[in-house]
C-alpha cells in the first residue's frame, strides 16, 4: 500500500515536471491528454451518480470564454483567469442541477445537449460580448509559455485524479452509487438527492470548465463553434467508456487511449475522410467487444487468471470505486 502511493506520487510529480524537459510535440500531447483526462474524470464523476451528460462542451465552452474574457477585457493573467473559469462552471452546473430537478437518464442527457447548443447560439448572437462567429484571439502579450501551460494542465489532471480518489474513500461515493442505481431508494436511505446532485454536478462542471480554461491559453483562439464543439462532448464520454466507466483508472487510461488513437489515425491515414472514419470504426468495435472498457476488461481477465492461480489477494479491492 505504502509503496504504491510513493510510486504514484513520484509518477504524478514526474508528469508535472515532464514539460520542462520534453520536446514541444510532447508538450502538445501532455496538454491534450491532460485536458482530456480532466474532462473524462469530470464526466465520469457525474456518470457515477447516474447523470449521463451529452453536453459537457457546455462547461468546457463556458470555462474557455470566462478565461478568455477576463484576460482580454480585464487583463487577468493565466493563473488568475482559471478561477472565474472554474467558478462559472461550478455555478452553472449547480443551476442546471437545480433546474433539471429529478430528470434522469436520457432526459438529463438531452437537457445537457440542449444547454450546450443553446449556449452556442447565445455566443454566436452576442458578438459585442463574445466576439461572435468571427472569433477572438486571446491577448498574445499575456500568454505564458507552452511549458507552463502544459505543466499546469498536468498538475490539474493530477489534482482531479486525487479528488476523484478522495471521493472514492468517503461515504459520498456510496451515496452516488446509490443514486445511480435507484434515486428513490437512496432517498429512503436518508440521502438528499438534490443536495448530492448539486454537489456532484458542481464539481464536475468546475473540472470541465477548468479544462476549457486551460486549453484556451494553449490554443489561443476561440469561436462559438470551437467552444461549444460537439467533439468535446464526444471525447468527454469516449475516454471514460474506452478506459472503463465508473472506475478510477478508467478515465485516465481512456484519455491516453483516445488521444493515442486519434494521433495514430491522424498521422497514418492521410487519405481524405479516413481518419475520422477509422476513429468511428474503432469506437464501434471497442464498445461491442469491450463494453467495460480497457480497464474493466483487464480486470476481468486478471481475475479469471487469479482464480486459476490463487495468489495476490490484496489487489482486487481497489478496483471497484
Amino acid at each position: 500500500m505504502q509503496a504504491r502511493f510513493v510510486i504514484y506520487a513520484l509518477l504524478a510529480i514526474a508528469a508535472i515536471l515532464l514539460p520542462l524537459v520534453a520536446p514541444p510535440v510532447m508538450n502538445n500531447l501532455i496538454l491534450r491528454v491532460g485536458s482530456l483526462m480532466i474532462l473524462a474524470i469530470s464526466w465520469n464523476l457525474a456518470a457515477n451518480a447516474g447523470l449521463i451528460s451529452l453536453g459537457h462542451s457546455a462547461f468546457w465552452g463556458l470555462g474557455s470564454y470566462a478565461a478568455l474574457l477576463v484576460a482580454n477585457r480585464l487583463g487577468w493573467p493565466f493563473f488568475a483567469s482559471l478561477i472565474p473559469a472554474m467558478l462559472i462552471g461550478a455555478i452553472s452546473a449547480a443551476a442546471i442541477a437545480v433546474i433539471t430537478g429529478r430528470l434522469r437518464g436520457i432526459f438529463f442527457a438531452i437537457a445537457m445537449l440542449a444547454l450546450s447548443e443553446g449556449l452556442r447560439v447565445i455566443a454566436v448572437m452576442t458578438p459585442e460580448f463574445t466576439g461572435g462567429g468571427a472569433g477572438v484571439f486571446i491577448d498574445q502579450a499575456l500568454r505564458p509559455s507552452t511549458q507552463t501551460v502544459a505543466m499546469v494542465t498536468a498538475a490539474c489532471a493530477v489534482g482531479c485524479a486525487i479528488i476523484a480518489y478522495w471521493i472514492s474513500l468517503t461515504p459520498f461515493h456510496y451515496a452516488c452509487r446509490a443514486m445511480r442505481n435507484n434515486e428513490n431508494a437512496a432517498e429512503m436511505l436518508g440521502i438528499n438527492p438534490l443536495r448530492f446532485r448539486i454537489a456532484v454536478l458542481s464539481l464536475s462542471g468546475a473540472m470541465a470548465s477548468l479544462a476549457g480554461g486551460v486549453n484556451i491559453w494553449y490554443s489561443g483562439f476561440l469561436d462559438p463553434a470551437i467552444g461549444f464543439d460537439l467533439h468535446v462532448t464526444i471525447l468527454a464520454q469516449i475516454a471514460p467508456i474506452l478506459g472503463g466507466i465508473h472506475t478510477l483508472a478508467g478515465p485516465i487510461i481512456g484519455a491516453f487511449a483516445t488521444i493515442g488513437l486519434s494521433e495514430v489515425t491522424r498521422v497514418m491515414v492521410g487519405e481524405q475522410g479516413f481518419s475520422l472514419l477509422v476513429y468511428g470504426v474503432i469506437l464501434v468495435f471497442s464498445i461491442l467487444c469491450m463494453p467495460k472498457g480497457i480497464y474493466g476488461t483487464w480486470l476481468t481477465w486478471s481475475q479469471r487468471k487469479r482464480q486459476t492461480t490463487p495468489t495476490a489477494p490484496s489487489a482486487t479491492k481497489a478496483a471497484t470505486p
Binding site: 504504491r4 509518477l11 483508472a249 491516453f256 487511449a257 483487464w298 478496483a319
Partner: peptide, 12 residues
C-alpha cells in the same frame, strides 16, 4: 492497482 501502473507504463 498494479494493473493501473502497467497500463500507464505501456501508454507512456
Amino acid at each position: 492497482m498494479t494493473s493501473l501502473m502497467e497500463n500507464l507504463g505501456r501508454m507512456a
